[in-house]
Amino acid sequence: MSARDDILGTVRRSLKRGGLTAEQEAPLLARLARPQAGPIPARSAGRDRRGLVELFDSQACEVHATVARVASLADVPAAIGDYLARQNLPAEMTAAPDKLLDGIPWDRRPLLRLKRGKPDPADAVGLSAAFAGIAETGTLMLISGAHSPSTLNFLPDTHVVVLPAARLVGPLEEAWKRLRAATGAMKLAGAAMPRTVNFITGPSRSADIELTLQLGAHGPRRLHIVVVEDDAVA
């Protein structure tokens, strides 16, 4: 008997039944076809976009990310240029080849140099666009694809992420809902699911030595989030 059949057989014997009948299977299939949310904390409920920005900002700062809020995409180059200068970082970024980032007028900050694509190990600053922001916990959601290499989220020492306020949601469940909607079928099975979905809450850290918090264990030491408050940017 194959290991698979053996294991499934033992599971069924232990549960004192055979395989499920079609009748027993029906509610389980329904549960998978229409996933239901569990209890959702009130923390992020009933907030308009402004309220979500406030909550996201404070939650992200609490986990040692930094947040800049700008009015429109046109303000992004200056916000990022200033940030890099303040941190004494080179004005050089490896950017995801993403439509939102391509739409930013980078020539407004001529000294800022951008390289598009996946990062080389020595690259100091990575630039990504978030698929969604989760206000409840100050979490970014990034998904892999032709427009967003996942290594960009981990290799460079500094990670800068552009997040339009329109992509902010309250709880994690809403972020899943957006991904479901983006797949067109509300079903995340098979190839509809991106290879990698990263939920990122603050910069990398470790407390493995004497339970003392240290930032920048293997991933970025700095996480800087630029929230674009212009409602027209989606």
Binding site: S144, G145, R195, T196, V197, T201, S204
Partner: peptide, 24 residues
Amino acid sequence: ATGQDMSVYTTVSTGPKRPSDLDG
């Protein structure tokens, strides 16, 4: 576990890299 609201990285991985993916 650690008293965090969320751990820093929660990563959901599904299959190998897709043909158009840049890494993975």
